[in-house]
Write a protein that binds this DNA or RNA. Sequence first.
DNA 1: ACATTCTAGCGAAACCTTTCGCCACTCCTC
DNA 2: GAGGAGTGGCGAAAGGTTTCGCTAGAATGT
Lengths: 127, 127
Amino acid sequence: MTKISPLPPTEVELQILRILWELGPSPVRLVHQRLEADKGTNYSTTVKMLSVMLEKGLVKRDEEASPHIYRTSISREKTSRRMLTDLVDKVYAGSTMSLVLQALSSTKATREELDEVRKLLDQMERQ
Amino acid sequence: MTKISPLPPTEVELQILRILWELGPSPVRLVHQRLEADKGTNYSTTVKMLSVMLEKGLVKRDEEASPHIYRTSISREKTSRRMLTDLVDKVYAGSTMSLVLQALSSTKATREELDEVRKLLDQMERQ
DNA sequence: ACATTCTAGCGAAACCTTTCGCCACTCCTC
DNA sequence: GAGGAGTGGCGAAAGGTTTCGCTAGAATGT
């Protein structure tokens, strides 16, 4: 345990994380392709962001491979859980249930999705 | 419609909004008390932040009153909905239901709360 | 009226994130 | 092995947020 959980990712960092989650371990080039498509950034910028993220411990890289290969060092689930609790703390004063209600009531859902939520509720109740 | 919805509030701005939502319209002094308790900021900082927020349209103020009275110009609900959809877009790739499932499965809830969610689900299904 | 406290505003600094230019190095290809 | 493309690194600039010192005016108490 040398490292506390890294700071919450910034905007662009999150974009890059998403790309890496989707693509899996990748060289800068591939990450950049996506990022550029999204927002027209320069290659240098992508390299720099990845190196910043490396310092922060948000990604790791394999330097053996000729084009270095980057991969995330935090899971999508962990990150989203973290951001979710941040949001809950910051806006909903800690009440996750308020957030759930708010989220549900502001979206459309198929019957299947609703059933899935019900199933989870039942499961929670049993415990 | 002179104004598009204001930019999403930054960290400190959000802290201040929360204070104002909680206290209702207040003079700087009261806002500052809370903010200082939270993070030990200087009075000048609070004044400045409020004036920045005024420019951005996040708050309004009554300049008649001797100590100026500030109040939010966006509702808590609107803000949270906005931040929620931001989060959903950024991390859950647009799937609100994924977020709901994630949020539910990472929290504890009373039977009453679970029932409330169920009620909402039923209601959604009927429409 | 004077001193003291409260309130407001401004500009500059400090700080962080994001961007990019420039340079160097490797790796092909001819 | 010379030229060109791809890759990586660094420092500095740009842009945004947050902080605060300093100043001044308004309000209050003596």
